[in-house]
Simulated scan of single mutants.
Amino acid sequence: MFSLSISRTLKALAACALLVLAAQAPAQSVFRLTAIPDESPTELARKAAPLVKYLEQKLGTKVEFTPVTDYAAAVEALAHKQVDLAWFGGFTYVQASQRSGGKAVPLVQREEDEKFRSVFITTDTTIRSLADLKGRNVSFGSQSSTSGHLMPRSFLLAAGIDPDRDFRRVAYSGAHDATVAAVASGKVDAGALNISVWDKLVADKKVDTTKVRIFYTTPPYYDYNWTVHADMPAAQRDKLTKAFLDLSRATPEGREILELQRATRFVPTRAENYKGIEAAARSAGLLK
């Protein structure tokens, strides 16, 4: 009886010890990713869903998409390590690098981002060139957008047109699709946005091209990338890079993700690719 009692006591103590250990064990780590809100929240969530599922399989951990309210919030989230991975435009990457003290590391970009472009659109038949925008109401996207503001502004300045001096009014729609809506509705005379969103809206028949048309396409430049903080362990960084590089249109999963990301494939990138963006931002007075 005595030995049986001891056995029961030991089992009870062991059970208690397991409960204590379980309580003290750290919660399951969550890998968080975010993206600049250059499109509507519903579209961003739709694009992220299959990528989240894929990365969970490749990283072996729970992955969550964390939406942010604006471009600045995405920059701050990565700089302060509130997220592990961020989808940036070239300019927001430069801002994140500055805010983090040079600790923002771009891993991969779409093949399309090596020669990205912006387009200027209008419904006004008298607007045929950038010079015709003088005295007009013109919309950009977010002030921190590479393809919706910085690079369009940079090419305007190169053409001798200062938006703040030469336009009647400069508007900021906040997102590329919102810029198209503003132009289509007549709220502004013209607008600038990234060519990828324009092509997608046209393909989905969400814009009437008999009324809204492109009148200027910019020269190419480097743009979007997936960026991590330099404090991420090298092994995890390598695993994450490989996951993106392994995406292929030859598989149903890869095709879905790449189509939603509007990518042919992902390729490695590096900080040096965005020196031109940084120079344009400083020249335009958007980066100190």
Rank of each mutant, 00 (worst) to 15 (best):
F2Q: 15
F2T: 15
I6P: 00
S7C: 07
S7Y: 06
S7T: 12
R8A: 11
R8N: 10
L13Y: 12
C16H: 12
L21N: 12
A22R: 08
A23N: 08
Q28A: 14
S29M: 02
F31D: 13
I36F: 06
I36K: 10
A45Q: 15
P50A: 11
P50E: 13
L51A: 05
K53T: 15
Y54C: 08
E56C: 00
T61Q: 14
T66G: 06
P67N: 13
V68R: 03
D70S: 12
A73F: 01
V75K: 01
A79Q: 01
A79P: 00
V83S: 00
A86S: 14
F88G: 06
G90Q: 08
T92H: 07
Y93K: 09
A96W: 01
Q98G: 05
S100F: 03
S100H: 11
E112A: 08
D113E: 13
K115A: 12
F116M: 09
R117V: 09
F120V: 14
D124A: 03
D124H: 05
T126C: 05
I127W: 02
R128G: 09
V138T: 02
V138Y: 04
S144Q: 15
S145T: 13
T146P: 01
S147N: 13
H149G: 07
M151W: 12
S154N: 09
L157G: 06
G160F: 05
G160A: 11
D162R: 01
P163S: 12
R165T: 13
R165V: 09
R168A: 10
H176Y: 12
V180C: 01
A184I: 05
D189S: 07
S196G: 10
W198Y: 11
D199R: 14
L201C: 04
V202D: 13
V202C: 05
A203H: 06
K206T: 09
V207Y: 04
K211G: 07
V212R: 06
R213V: 01
F215V: 02
Y216Q: 05
T217Y: 02
T217M: 05
T218E: 08
Y222T: 14
N225L: 00
W226P: 02
A234K: 13
K239R: 13
F244P: 00
D246S: 07
S248W: 03
G254V: 12
I257M: 01
L258V: 02
E259T: 10
Q261E: 13
E272S: 14
N273A: 11
N273S: 06
G276R: 10
G276E: 15
E278N: 05
G285V: 06
L287F: 07
